[in-house]
Design a protein around this nucleic acid. Structure first.
Lengths: 118, 118
DNA sequence: TTATTAATTAAGCATATGCTAATATGCCCT
DNA sequence: AGGGCATATTAGCATATGCTTAATTAATAA
């Protein structure tokens, strides 16, 4: 889930989401993205670091230029898996053990009226 | 895309992502979420406002309690559509007209050496 | 080697975010 | 009406984020 969070966080920002759409068309180098998105080359680098950390893009240096391409495979798989996870029940999501426990406790011992009255 | 951004932003935060997983199991009221997630009731309310704004959850008042449920349909559709959009090319994403224009300009007038040399 | 260009990293700043405590609102029951 | 919960909203604060400019690092070419 830490992984999913990273992915969603990466996608949940206007500039980066645009980058993903742009890279879905074709690979682009930093200077091109800079020109298209109208932000500093430094900003591009920083966003790319985040997208890379989420494994959403690949980086390839070609001479002095660094070209980025979209990892469409990973993106697609992760989102599909997320949807599947949602259908499989909480036990499938290991990183929520604590919360699952508390949920189960509530199921057995309804904390308050909210469950009793209905 | 504004929409997608809102959705990804909503999902890209640990507490809210947990909420989504929890609600995928069953609907829950604020006081239950408070207990499960161990944050203040105010925090729950605020997060729910964001999830609601992204249309990811539905809210139903039952007496003094408000129950939230996951809008799995919407979530699933939006993510699928996003993946489809990525395959359809930029023209499909209307909100990127400006960037598309600049991309096309670059395609015709390679800005610098990066395209000429390779 | 030095100069030039591209990209990354660091520093700094303004704004956004996530949370809590305090207050207000809404719903139910006397 | 008035008291008692559950939830929402507000205010305030500490931290995170997105950006810029400045300083480094990397690669190429003279």
């Amino acid at each position: 889930m830490k992984n999913l969070e990273k992915i969603f966080k990466a996608l949940g920002q206007a500039t980066r989401l645009k980058m993903v759409f742009l890279l879905s068309e074709q690979e682009l180098c930093v200077c091109e993205l800079e020109h298209i998105l109208q932000v500093s080359q430094s900003a591009i680098s920083q966003h790319m670091r985040i997208l890379k950390a989420a494994d959403l893009v690949n980086e390839e240096r070609r001479g002095q230029w660094v070209f980025y391409s979209l990892n469409k495979q990973v993106l697609s798989e992760q989102l599909q898996d997320f949807l599947k996870l949602l259908d499989m029940g909480l036990k499938a999501e290991g990183r929520m053990a604590e919360e699952l426990e508390r949920l189960q406790y509530l199921q057995e011992n309804p904390i308050v009226e909210c469950r009793i009255q209905n």
